[in-house]
Design a protein around this nucleic acid. Structure first.
Length: 259
DNA sequence: ATGCCGTGGAAACCACGA
């Protein structure tokens, strides 16, 4: 069972890249972020033709998340994080699929920091952490994945000293990620590759991809039941080099089938 | 050191991203 996360940076603008990658990688479950499309503009039929059933939470221009699955319709559990009815950003969707709970998230960027956007990021992080605690306690197999907009450690940034004041790397953001993970979640990439420089995002400019000036900000957090079954993980970084690519690359895990 | 690129939407510029 292969589970992937991919910030597509515009699901319609990147549709050909997305379809090409789906066809090549054949993941079983896919979490997408930054659809940048209202619900009615989600390319459902193209994705269906590619072999995937999907649920999505779209929004005009910004944000937007979706969960795709082969052979099975993801059964929606919720499409917002509890805790703030005023928050209308489409940044979270959760489904039951393949006997797991899959949470797909697009955590706020938070720049400029400090400021209201950074406050929103930290508040959103708090809500996520609270929600995650409930999921964790449920004892169910859970995958909490998406664009966390946080580099957890210095190993996850090409030039840490340049990012210390950035919302993605500030101590508050790193502490929030650490607090979440310390509930007992497993960061899949770091579990298998504790010391390797691994990135999931490269800026469009300054030839960031060519220089490998990247960040690791897309993560898959696994509950103990799923972590036990983890057999492989990786980043499809070559996809970032494709024409019309997103600035993120897909990240995936392979888990053994549950018995 | 910096949105230098890129998207979507509105209206030939703006907001937003990491």
């Amino acid at each position: 069972m292969k589970i992937a996360t991919y910030n597509v940076n515009g699901v319609n603008g990147r549709l050909q890249v997305l379809l090409r990658w789906l066809n090549e990688a054949t993941p079983d479950i896919v979490c997408l972020q930054e659809l940048k499309a209202p619900p009615e503009k989600f390319p459902a039929s193209a994705i269906k033709d590619a072999g995937y059933k999907a649920i999505w939470h779209g929004q005009k221009s910004w944000n937007g998340v979706a969960i795709l699955a082969r052979n099975e319709e993801p059964k929606e559990i919720c499409r917002a994080l509890p805790g703030d009815p005023e928050d209308l950003h489409s940044r979270y969707i959760e489904a039951s699929v393949a006997n797991m709970v899959v949470g797909c998230l697009y955590l706020p960027n938070g720049n400029p920091a400090p400021g209201p956007k950074f406050d929103y990021k930290l508040a959103w992080f708090e809500r996520l952490t609270k929600h995650a605690a409930g999921l964790f306690k449920s004892g169910k197999p859970v995958v909490l994945t998406g664009d966390y907009n946080v580099m957890p450690t210095e190993l996850d940034v090409y030039k840490p000293e340049r990012w210390v004041d950035d919302a993605l790397f500030r101590p508050e953001s790193r502490a929030a990620f650490k607090k979440l993970v310390s509930q007992g979640w497993t960061d899949a990439i770091r579990k298998l590759y504790p010391d390797q420089k691994i990135y999931t995002f490269w800026d469009y400019f300054r030839n960031a991809y060519g220089r490998d000036a990247g960040l690791r900000i897309d993560h898959l957090l696994l509950s103990p039941h799923v972590a036990k079954r983890l057999v492989a993980a990786g980043v499809d970084r070559h996809v970032r080099g494709w024409e019309k690519s997103s600035d993120h690359a897909p990240v995936w895990i392979e888990v053994a089938n549950s018995k």
